[in-house]
Design a protein around this nucleic acid. Structure first.
Lengths: 109, 109
DNA sequence: TTATTAAATCGCAATATTGCGATATATTAA
DNA sequence: TTAATATATCGCAATATTGCGATTTAATAA
């Protein structure tokens, strides 16, 4: 007990949930918004930007990398992070189609 | 330590993260998809639908209710759940505007 | 009233997440 | 080589989530 029972759900449901999980922390939202705002690779000032400890920031960056939504490229002594536009688009489309089909005439109890 | 440092982030970032958290479990995705598919209030068969224990299902329903995205109305001995279309729309719009501004010509390192 | 049914809550155990200091790793500069 | 800089990883503590059996709560049925 304690671990999610992924075998009960469809692959699509698990994928959407895991994408949501990647976004489920304000630090990760902030990192993504920062990268989008810069619209370029960002080398090395994300720690200062966030206000969390370096180790914690690195942890969040790792989660975003695992989710595929950002890429980290080694550039000399530092690492450059940027949005992966292809994965970003996939997120966008999956969330979009998830939220699409609700009509407002939902006559509730 | 261990708790999210919400005070470091904007209200908008915390809100989006908390919305993502509500979606960050396949059981909750499954519940929402089920309610959307039925396009009506669903009284009492969500536990059978999911495959999780009654207590666990109730817990997930509670989280979705706390997030505001579903409503539960008492109907005799059972409870009827349905999407709150207004909150659903809000989710849709916030995620939409979050994912909007990424151009593909993101020339990465 | 008593039994039945449906859902919520309690209490617990297992696991996951968040955060950080300390340390390790890797690259550049001197 | 040695020092400096940037990032990753380790190890730990605190907190949160997931899941479930057992119990409680609330409404209907008999």
């Amino acid at each position: 007990m304690g671990a999610t029972k992924t075998e009960l759900f469809t692959e699509q449901q698990n994928e959407l949930a895991s994408m949501a999980k990647a976004l489920a922390h304000p630090a990760r939202i902030a990192i993504l918004q920062y990268l989008v705002k810069k619209n370029a690779c960002v080398c090395g000032d994300i720690v200062d930007e966030l206000g969390l400890a370096q180790a914690t920031t690195s942890q969040h960056l790792k989660e975003l990398k695992n989710a595929g939504i950002i890429q980290g490229t080694i550039d000399g002594p530092s690492v450059c992070y940027c949005i992966d536009p292809k994965v970003w688009l996939k997120y966008k489309e999956l969330f979009n189609s998830f939220f699409k089909n609700v009509t407002i005439d939902n006559n509730c109890c």
